[in-house]
Nucleic acid binder design. Structure first.
Lengths: 199, 199
DNA sequence: CTTTTATGAATGAAGG
DNA sequence: CCTTCATTCATAAAAG
């Protein structure tokens, strides 16, 4: 297992440093054709270049998924910023993002895995799990928020969950003594509005 | 295994901060587009979009570069060793398991169910599902491992690949049996807070 | 140090 | 069989 954690920290630090450096240097962010020396401003994006950019961004699409969500939330909350951030992603990028909402499909997973594999060790299982968890959690979040609003915040919860499964509940009897029923509950009202205004 | 998912978050955070900073400082690399007003600028994208793309790519590029380098140091140690099937159920159960990996057959299921019933509530359906899932998953796992095993096989792991296949874990003491090695993860819950500065 | 939160993963079960 | 969903666990990171 080695100390992955250490590595992570290292990375974070380095990244931050990097960031700072960029910042100090004015974050040039490599101009496309920034040859605006005062005349022939050739900032023309050839189709090739454009394509390259799109491709890169598409690859990062998955990586930024959450960022987009947050941005959307922000946009929705502020209303001021408006469309500025909502539509700045390429269609490819958006495609990826959106794919997460519905059906990942094996094909997608393979694609994504392939692309991400270029940047590090990753398996299809990882991607699959990620989507799986993502869907489940976003759904549950919505559920909670919705129910919370509808129920007028009353602490009535408790039982409503019902054991639809009627599953023998496994053999709880065994551990009934120690299980501490964590009971989830992340009541994070506030931000989680999760508006789906997309753009 | 270093998951992309993990550092993805870092990137998200990084990017967010980056954008954040840029916004706060009003850092617009306007030199690229600013003085091209009267020129023949054949743009395929708006300044804003272009700017956004450049930023994203620049940030990602640098970060990824470093990440890739750092990953290389660890990739070699990434060993999946996903093949472990030791099971730790009752010997009886184990015997059954071993008897055949395919098709339990109704008879078998009945028997097994009967035996396990001595230890707790369990139905044939449970047993059936269990076999079903087990087969499917073990198969898929093999696939994944096989395909993903192109990496160098460094045996850095102490050992303990111990199996964790836990089955009727329900019966067993809810032992927390620390499973295997791996995983690392980090996230950035504070992104949201950062977001507030975005304005 | 303890509690929370976020998230990858494992697993039982339902549908098709 | 295969896919998908719901639940749960373990743990790293952050919060207090």
């Amino acid at each position: 297992m080695v100390n992955i954690m250490e590595w992570e920290k290292q990375q974070q630090q380095q990244q931050q440093q990097q960031q700072l450096q960029q910042k100090r240097e004015g974050l040039q962010s490599g101009n496309v054709n920034g040859n605006c020396a005062g005349m022939m401003c050739v900032k023309v994006m050839t189709d090739e270049q454009l394509e390259t950019l799109r491709k890169q961004i598409a690859v990062y699409g998955v990586i930024c998924e959450q960022l987009v969500d947050l941005h959307k939330q922000f946009v929705a909350q502020q209303d001021l910023a408006g469309a500025r951030l909502g539509n700045m992603y390429s269609s490819d990028f958006r495609a990826y993002i959106r794919s997460g909402n519905g059906t990942p499909s094996k094909q997608k997973i393979k694609e994504i895995t392939a692309e991400l594999s270029q940047h590090g060790q990753i398996s299809e299982t990882n991607v699959y799990n990620w989507f799986q968890n993502r869907r489940a959690r976003s759904k549950r979040k919505q559920q909670n928020v919705a129910s919370g609003n509808a129920e007028s915040e009353v602490e009535t919860e408790a039982e409503s969950i019902k054991d639809k499964k009627t599953k023998p509940e496994e053999f709880q009897s065994q551990n009934s003594g120690n299980s501490r029923t964590e009971d989830l509950c992340l009541q994070n009202p506030e931000v989680s509005s999760e508006l789906h205004y997309l753009t």
